[in-house]
Structures are given as C-alpha cells and as structure tokens.
Measured scan of single mutants.
Amino acid sequence: DHDVVPEDKFQETLHLKEKEGCPQAFHALLSWLLTQDSTAILDFWRVLFKDYNLERYGRLQPILDSFPKDVDLSQPRKGRKPPAVPKALVPPPRLPTKRKASEEARAAAPAALTPRGTASPGSQLKAKPPKKPESSAEQQRLPLGNGIQTMSASVQRAVAMSSGDVPGARGAVEGILIQQVFESGGSKKCIQVGGEFYTPSKFEDSGSGKNKARSSSGPKPLVRAKGAQGAAPGGGEARLGQQGSVPAPLALPSDPQLHQKNEDECAVCRDGGELICCDGCPRAFHLACLSPPLREIPSGTWRCSSCLQATVQEVQPRAEEPRPQEPPVETPLPPGLRSAGEEVRGPPGEPLAGMDTTLVYKHLPAPPSAAPLPGLDSSALHPLLCVGPEGQQNLAPGARCGVCGDGTDVLRCTHCAAAFHWRCHFPAGTSRPGTGLRCRSCSGDVTPAPVEGVLAPSPARLAPGPAKDDTASHEPALHRDDLESLLSEHTFDGILQWAIQSMARPAAPFPS
C-alpha cells in the first residue's frame, strides 16, 4: 500500500487522527484517494484483494465477484509491481515495509483507509498491559489484515481490525468495519463480527460495544468508541475503539438485554438511515425525530424517553415518601432524547437536551391539597369587569335574561352582576328603583315568574340570613337542586349567576 499512500500523506493522516480522531482521518484520506487517478484506485483494489485478505475476510469475495470481468485485479505471486511496468521484474528490497512494521508496532494501528489505518492507538496503548502477550500477537497480524480498504464507483468500504477477539475476553470487541457502500446513491455502514460483515439490516451488537450512531460526518466517531472515555459513568459499556482492553462492566443492572439487537429503522417514522440506538431497549431513532430533536450524538450512555420514564417511576415512589426537613431528592440522569409524543421536562434553567451534561430531575413533595375552585371561562368573567365610571356595571355583549332568554333592554344586578328583565323577575308590577337594581334572587323575592315553557326556580334557592346585616342577608345558599333548576333554563347567565354566588365573597367592612 506504500505505492498507493505516500509517506507524507501517511504522516498527515496520523497527525489528523491524533488531533480530530479516526473518523475524520478516514474521511480525509478517502476524499484524497478519490481525487487520484484511476491507476492509484486500481492499485488500491489490488492491494485489498490479496489472497491473505480474501482468506481472512470471507465477505470480500462477493465484492470481488461483483467487479466487471474485464477488470484485472489479480496479484502476481513473485511480488508487487506497478501496473504500468511491462516487465515482470522483482521490485527492489522494500524498506517501507520495515517502516510500516515499526510504526504500526509503535502506534498499534494508524488512522488511514489502508491496512495502516483504523484502530485507535492511544486507547490501545492505555489498555494494553493486562493483555500484552495476546495483543502483541495481534499486532503482528495487523499489517496483514488490519485495514481492508475498498473503493469503487459501486462499493466503497473501509475495514478496521481490532485485537478484541482475544480468547477469554468477556464481551470482547470482535472488530470495527467502517463501511461506506455507495449503492444507488445511498450510504450504509456496517460492522465486522468474527470475520463476517453485518449491514444495518442485520447488524449484531457484538459483546459490549454497539453501533451508536451510523454517521460518517462530524467530529463524533462512527461508533461511540473513545478509548479514553473507558466505561460509562454508571458502569455503562465498553467502547469499540478500545482495542485489546480488559473486560469492562457491560450494562447497567436495569438493562433488559446485554447482547440485544437494535432495530435498523426509526421507532417514530419507521424509516432507515442514520440512527441513534438506545442503551436500554432495542429501539433506534433519527436525531430529527426525537422531541426535542438533537443536533449531535450525546457522549456516554444514552437512553430513550421510555427508558428514562421507567427509571424515574422506579425512583419516584421512594422520593415521595414523607421525609421531614430533607432537601428534594435529586436523581442524576443521562441526557435523554425524547421520541415524538413523549416529553420529560427538567427543571427550568437546565441546558437543552443533547448537550454533554447531566440533567437533574428533582422530585419535590406534593403540595397540600386544596379545595378545587369553580372553573370559569374568561368570557364568563367579562360582565364582572365591565364597570362604568360611576361604579355601575355596563352590559356585556350577548347578555340575556335568565328567565325569558331575551337580551333586549336587559338590566344588570348590582349584587350578582346577572342580566335580567324587571318585568320577568317582578311581574307583579313592583316599581323599579332608580339605583341599586337587584334581581329577584338578590332582592329576596322568590315568586316564580309566569313564563310559559320555563321551569320556575326551586323555592330553596334563597336562604336569607339575619336582617340586621343587609349585605350578609342576601347571601344565597345554592344546592344541587338549585343548579339543576338553573340548568333547565338553558341560559348561560343562569349558570354564571350560580357560579358567582357559589364563590365566597369577603364580608362587608363594618362602618367606622
């Protein structure tokens, strides 16, 4: 592969990997390779389809078979030569091979799209000592099968071997295949498990690692696999990028399955594409389908809103127990993405979901129960707010008499603000006073009005108090039968009158 990737590009890729991570280095090298001529790309395919690569990765054979028959990708048995050289000459001794072996032994695996480039050397060096003999053996194999790289107009793939297949390693990572398949204008990513390549439709969760975000852009890794992070704060999961590491605690105790298979379609829109997988259930989501939507993949363990709600429900009964003089119970939860139609709101002032922060849900004790107040519409209280300059209440639009249902020339009671006709409430011909108009209920007259088809109010509507207090003497005590009587009149003013009279009014101040 030294004929494909020059030394300066190799060093530039290593520097970019240390600065921005393996995914960015892979993407940059792939983009550079696509700008080369067809001879360089053909050399790339020839390096990929060597015999030892085909033996190690069985899924490469179907890719090789898909090439046109007129494309010669065979390799000479006596060494490598550029395709432009007409004579089959043995190339001179390859010093770059020693360079590659020494550099890969030092860096474990470079971040390139060629056999030198995919593992994360920093994480491997940190986690190597417990498994040094086995990992050293794996390093000797890295130059042979560490990076199976493929690129063409139909298929483009980048393979990364790992030393996680050490025997006896619980939940060992089998390997990473960062794979971009450009077929019919689409893009897919796969993962390699035990020599087999699994596409998103049959993606397997190998051991402790999972394909957290099938994305090839942005600074985030394709698999949430930063070796420096180790395990999740809650004892979460091992990262795919942690090559040759000792077994780590796999999943939280509440995880239903340690080796679950995540779905390959969004649980909201039932469509495929780039998904984020939940650590607590097999569901996966688009970032845009979450509520609120996320802009980037959160670091650490992530769970959907259903799993978060289940966790909150487990903690909430203990938080609601009476604990005198104790601060509110704080339950730190990872930043969760909410699927459509589901929402768990945190306290005000918290950062938005999706940031690399930890939301704190506070379970406050329930407030003391209070008697429910009568629910009145805002339009129902409008007549009470229509007060004239002299303190006389004006008529609201649409006000109707509670007896006849007519809204023409209605009066407004100064005591309960109900609309009424003087002739309907006082049919006996009582003279109307000039000021202080009161309806039949507030004036103490319980004589029913002779209106055909309208039920008369119940005599129990009024329960006047002592006459010594004029204001308190007109406080009506309405009961269920009074409400039914008012409802039978089918008037809004009657219902409003009952609601206003049912509310307690402050006692009249004593004259000074």
Rank of each mutant, 00 (worst) to 15 (best):
L437S: 05
S485N: 03
D377T: 14
A467N: 06
Y361G: 08
Q242S: 07
W498Q: 03
H363Q: 12
R323H: 09
Q242M: 10
F426E: 07
E314Y: 14
S379N: 06
A472D: 06
P335E: 09
A353D: 07
R412T: 05
A399K: 05
L384D: 12
P506Y: 00
L395I: 13
D377P: 09
P372N: 13
N394Q: 05
R323I: 10
L290Q: 14
G453D: 06
D356E: 06
Q393I: 08
G241P: 06
G453K: 08
L333K: 14
P328G: 13
G300M: 15
V315R: 13
L483C: 06
G429F: 13
L252Q: 13
A371M: 09
L250W: 12
L333G: 05
F426L: 04
C269T: 03
R270C: 13
C401T: 03
F510S: 04
T471V: 05
P351M: 14
P459N: 12
E326S: 13
D271M: 14
S502L: 02
P457W: 01
A428G: 13
P327I: 12
E265R: 05
P334D: 09
T430P: 12
S305Q: 09
A284G: 09
P317W: 10
S473K: 04
Q309S: 12
V312P: 11
G434N: 06
A288E: 08
P509F: 09
E320R: 12
H425Y: 08
A396E: 08
V454I: 11
Q313F: 07
A370K: 11
V246R: 10
C401R: 02
Q392L: 12
N394R: 03
R438W: 12
T357L: 13
Y361M: 12
M503R: 01
G273R: 06
T414I: 14
P293I: 11
T447N: 07
T311D: 08
T435H: 10
C413M: 00
T358E: 05
H421P: 02
A267C: 14
S254Y: 12
P368Y: 12
Q313Y: 08
A248V: 08
G341C: 15
P368S: 13
G465C: 13
P464C: 13
G300R: 11
H382M: 00
S485Q: 15
P367Q: 15
P457L: 12
G280N: 03
C278G: 09
G346C: 08
E320T: 13
C439V: 02
Q260C: 08
D271A: 08
P397V: 05
D255V: 12
C277N: 06
S443G: 08
G375D: 13
F285E: 14
C304P: 15
R505I: 15
I276F: 12
L308K: 10
N394H: 08
A460L: 11
D264V: 08
V446T: 09
Q497A: 07
P347K: 09
G273E: 12
